[in-house]
Design a protein around this nucleic acid. Structure first.
Lengths: 202, 202
DNA sequence: GTCTATAGACGGATAGAC
DNA sequence: GTCTATCCGTCTATAGAC
């Protein structure tokens, strides 16, 4: 059985993702969560800001798993990237361009207007970068290169979500995936590597 | 002498860029523009939605010129891209990570909540894509490749703005620029071209 | 036609009943 | 400790004075 706090966090995550932080009301959130209004201040005494922060951290950290799900099981680094972006395309089409990044909207809103909230989004992006760096290192990339490749992946993905959801096409996402593959090929070429997983890292 | 409507549009552009569409009030806008409150409904009878739409279109179209300014005068395509992203890094540092894309925040907010506003952002992105495609075509790239390269540039740029402004580092922007260069190199290699401007196109 | 004062709705937050 | 009724500020939008 899911607790009330979890339901509020889940409702907040969905509403913030769609309508943004400023565009979403507390009453909207508790209504969607099926909770009485007062309970939100019981679980989040810091009010909307605390709720926003916790929503960003929890929903953001859940998405870090996507690196494990899509890239880690792949036979080589390139197909891992291609699978990852194919998944993003599927998500866009299946949800009619509703589901994108869970925190990008809030990140842009908060960047210069709400320091604690900005910090939360930054922590999530840093966690994603760490997770991706670890995942790509398993394919034999030195840590610095693995970090570069992860940043290329996340930036391309985020930007593609912006364009795809605005223009309602998956074309930018396909281009973005191909761009990250180009980066991976360049980094592998610098090493003289083939991108296959190394036995000692399995 | 700048008219009142232009001042309102300029103030709206700056405030929407920082605080987003939902997070910015009409009173804030007219105050910053130094205009009386009623004048906003005189110039924008459609209210906030019409104002948002016109802000997105005017400020978005102004940014299309950046392709001409940074990329067109370059001796070759690769240095054009590098100059473009170096400019983005300078902007981030000079403005302490305040200035990013003028419409990305609104694009994400409006994607699933405000159809006319989403449309305006989509039209701007399409205009940028057209401008970039034309610009890259001048370097001898076939139109389809030039469009692909432009989409790679815009997606990488947008995503890098999200991460840079959230994390307060320019690292993602540097990685994004290098990624777009990788895409350009791949497209040029497919053509056996050197990326220099063609005499007949100058 | 420019501007002010206000309406009407909704925002976040809280006090207090149970 | 759970929930409801309400407060006060701010929002968009408008009516009407000048």
């Amino acid at each position: 059985m899911t607790g009330t706090k979890d339901r509020i966090l889940a409702a907040g995550a969905e509403l913030f993702r769609h309508g943004g932080y400023a565009g979403t009301g507390m009453k909207q959130i508790v209504e969607k969560a099926g909770a009485p209004f007062g309970s939100v201040y019981h679980f989040f005494p810091g009010g909307k800001e605390q709720l926003g922060e916790e929503v960003v951290r929890t929903s953001g950290m859940q998405y870090a798993q996507l690196f494990e799900v899509f890239i880690a099981p792949s036979p080589d680094l390139i197909t891992g990237i291609e699978t990852f972006f194919a998944g993003a395309v599927t998500t866009l089409l299946d949800t009619d361009y509703v589901e994108g990044c869970p925190i990008a909207t809030v990140a842009l809103e908060a960047a210069t207007t709400n320091e604690p909230l900005r910090r939360a989004t930054a922590d999530v992006f840093e966690a994603w970068t760490k997770a991706g760096t670890k995942g790509f290192s398993a394919f034999g990339l030195p840590e610095e290169h693995a970090r570069t490749l992860t940043l290329a992946l996340v930036t391309s993905l985020e930007g593609a979500f912006v364009l795809c959801r605005s223009m309602r096409t998956t074309e930018p996402m396909a281009v973005a995936g191909a761009a990250v593959v180009d980066v991976a090929r360049r980094l592998l070429a610098e090493l003289g590597d083939d991108g296959k997983r190394r036995p000692e890292d399995s």
